[in-house]
């Protein structure tokens, strides 16, 4: 709610020990509580990236708003995209409680200093992509976000609870599109298969690097910013999603995929980490286009923000003059 920092130094060892005790006792950390500098920094990075992902995530779907096959689908897609904008707001708002301004965060996004989920740097080529995104991309995001509902930072955890409530419609509408297409004509089935072929692996990449290569995981787990590791979440997603693909009669594009009766979960192949790093580095198919669209939207809206502020200022003066009279 407000961002006044504590007077105590951000590296006071006594406070640091007391802080960890609170975390271990499952006591949530709130904006005005003392927190180590690293905890604040990690949260700002992770939460702002998360916020950026929500709003950049509106763009690949926006591509199909004018091309949706029916009015019903258009209304649904519009509602979903609007939700994602809302998710961005909840997350920006929660991040601001840590003492960073909205403009600073936008600036970091627009200059490329801050990242967003790489999945949104892939193009949306056919209508089945709207199905695959809702089903797989939102599905992966939900898996991740459910775990974050128990995050130690109060405002982040609360934003996640709110977001998770809204997300389930996103995944269901996506799966329904896939169902319609998988049960449709030969061409529609092929489009559905083509969509899963392109979105499957990038969806698995959404969980981030393997635990062994994830440098920040240990500290984040100690601080309970993260409650479940990347690999665990990814496996959970695979186990939940493969049967859904089978139900659709679609192939999962992984020839190593096999049920492991002993583990009671799926064995599967390996992510192309070169592709992952390449897209993160900015060389995905749509990196430049997405950022440019964001910048244009922000710059294009400047006159509206300015006008609204000028109007508010004028109204204030008028009210004051009336009172004085």
């Amino acid at each position: 709610m407000d961002t006044n920092k504590s007077n105590v130094a951000e590296n006071d060892p006594q406070f640091e020990a007391a802080f960890q005790k609170k975390i271990d006792a499952e006591i949530k950390i709130e904006p005005r509580d003392w927190m180590p500098a690293g905890y604040r920094k990690t949260l700002i990075r992770q939460m702002s990236q998360h916020a950026h992902s929500e709003i950049v995530g509106m763009l690949p779907e926006g591509n199909w708003l004018t091309r949706a096959p029916s009015l019903k689908r258009k209304a649904i897609l519009m509602a979903k995209i609007q939700d994602e904008g809302g998710h961005g707001l909840y997350l920006y708002s929660a991040t601001e409680t840590l003492g960073i301004s909205r403009d600073e965060m936008y600036d970091q996004l627009h200059t490329g200093k801050a990242k967003y989920s790489s999945i949104f740097n892939y193009p949306t080529l056919n209508w089945a992509d709207m199905g695959a995104i809702g089903w797989l991309v939102d599905g992966a995001a939900i898996t991740n976000q459910i775990a974050l509902c128990r995050c130690s930072y109060g405002p982040y955890a609360r934003a996640m609870v709110k977001i998770c409530k809204e997300e389930s419609f996103h995944q269901r509408q996506g799966y329904e599109i896939m169902m319609n297409m998988a049960q449709g004509t030969k061409e529609q089935r092929e489009m559905a298969q083509d969509a899963i072929n392109r979105w499957w692996w990038p969806s698995l990449m959404m969980f981030g690097p393997h635990d062994a290569d994830s440098t920040r995981t240990t500290q984040s787990m100690t601080w309970k910013i993260k409650r479940t590791s990347n690999d665990e979440l990814r496996q959970k997603f695979v186990d939940a999603t493969v049967p859904q693909a089978h139900y659709l009669g679609l192939d999962v594009p992984d020839d190593k995929l096999a049920w492991n009766e002993e583990k009671k979960s799926y064995d599967w192949g390996e992510i192309d980490w070169d592709e992952f790093r390449n897209v993160v580095a900015g060389n995905g198919l749509c990196n430049r286009e997405r950022l440019q669209t964001r910048r244009d939207a922000h710059d294009g809206g400047k006159w509206v923000r300015d006008a609204a502020l000028a109007y508010a200022e004028k109204q204030k003066k008028r009210t004051a003059a009336k009172k004085a009279a």
């Binding site: 707001l89 909205r102 609204a308 502020l309 508010a312």
Partner: peptide
Amino acid sequence: AAELPLYEVFIRSKNGLHHKHVGSLHASD
């Protein structure tokens, strides 16, 4: 400095319950 001012939002989910803080947003007025 020209960033729109920050507002906190409180919502009463149904009659009989308190307003509860739900988040914030920027607005000109």
